[in-house]
Design a protein around this nucleic acid. Sequence first.
DNA 1: GTCTATACACTGATAGAC
DNA 2: GTCTATCAGTGTATAGAC
Lengths: 219, 219
Amino acid sequence: MWLNFIVNTYSFMTEHEKNTEQKILDAAEDVFLHKGMSGARMQEIADKAGINKALLHYYYRTKDKLFEKVFEKAFKIFIPKVTGMMASDTPVIEKIKFFIDNYMDLLTRHPFIPAFLISELNRNPQILVSLFEKNVQLTRNDIIKNFDKQIQTEVKAGILKSVDARNLMVSIVGMCIFPIVGRPIIQGVLFENNKKDYNEFLGQRKESIKEFIVNSIKA
Amino acid sequence: MWLNFIVNTYSFMTEHEKNTEQKILDAAEDVFLHKGMSGARMQEIADKAGINKALLHYYYRTKDKLFEKVFEKAFKIFIPKVTGMMASDTPVIEKIKFFIDNYMDLLTRHPFIPAFLISELNRNPQILVSLFEKNVQLTRNDIIKNFDKQIQTEVKAGILKSVDARNLMVSIVGMCIFPIVGRPIIQGVLFENNKKDYNEFLGQRKESIKEFIVNSIKA
DNA sequence: GTCTATACACTGATAGAC
DNA sequence: GTCTATCAGTGTATAGAC
């Protein structure tokens, strides 16, 4: 009977703790992503999480530690996806098409992460150092080497025009990310700030990019 | 004699005033570009300008007003250049090559402006509204229409493959800007954080982009 | 125009009760 | 774990002397 109570209490506590911690992380993500490290307020995060500042500091002692968690999560969502794109051994063009479809979907689901990463990293590139130390696999650059090797093989086989792997990757990611991070500008200048038109533009852009790239690199 | 003194004093004053104002603007640009609106400190701007906070508020009454000036300058350096690219009536491919050379040079000279614009505009898209009202020509979208018309003409003439003007523009600018705003990430992940290697990469990228685009759109 | 001194609000963080 | 109350530090902005 009392054991049952303890068990219930315990399971209730952990469940509850988990919820509070998760609520905080969700709220922190929301605020940090939109306001950035320096613009975010602990008070606003607490409000969004439905708790108070003291409890916020009880879970994550400082603003820096909370930011670090949010940043790491955001980073891990976006970057490994890019390097992972080059891992499989399907043909290059097929791989690129698959990547663009998936990456654009990811960007549409998390439209504020790229601008957040760009902003915070340009202001403090140091963040990456500790992150790289904790996740060595993120810096494994044999992946790009393998991708380059595969490209050169297909070039020799007459499938592709001669292209540099890193230039190609930067171009692909740039074409995917820019319409998202540059949305306020592009939508304003090229689409008379019409949100609906811009969403349509984003919807068809996947195909547009794929065609653009294939046209460029296919032999 | 006393007239001479007044004139000298006056000319000295305006010259001096101009210098102080310019010093403030330079310092403000430096700080805002690196720290953003919320991260910038009036104290730091005053220090960099060699004056004190009180004088800062004497020239620009509030932080917002000072930020506005910096933002407007940064915006005008980068955006009209893009729309201006489509103004001349030289052949499309020639125009694109010319644009890429000039835009990449501009980006190299002001590497922090794009991330600054992206960051601030994603956090507060409202900034653009007042800016557009003050500079109506920025929203003149007949420019893009003319560019599109020119493209379709060259398509019919068998010079170009069928391409959409806006998709092409977004792709070009994205390919130019991403290696700059994403430098910390790209340099870290693809270049083992080697600054020298990355500078070389940037040096050859102009040619790489041009070749990539021409390969894609040339009929 | 330029300075020193200061008002006043806000923010991150902690103490202590429950 | 969660709350209220509060502190110490920092930030923008102004007052007033020169």
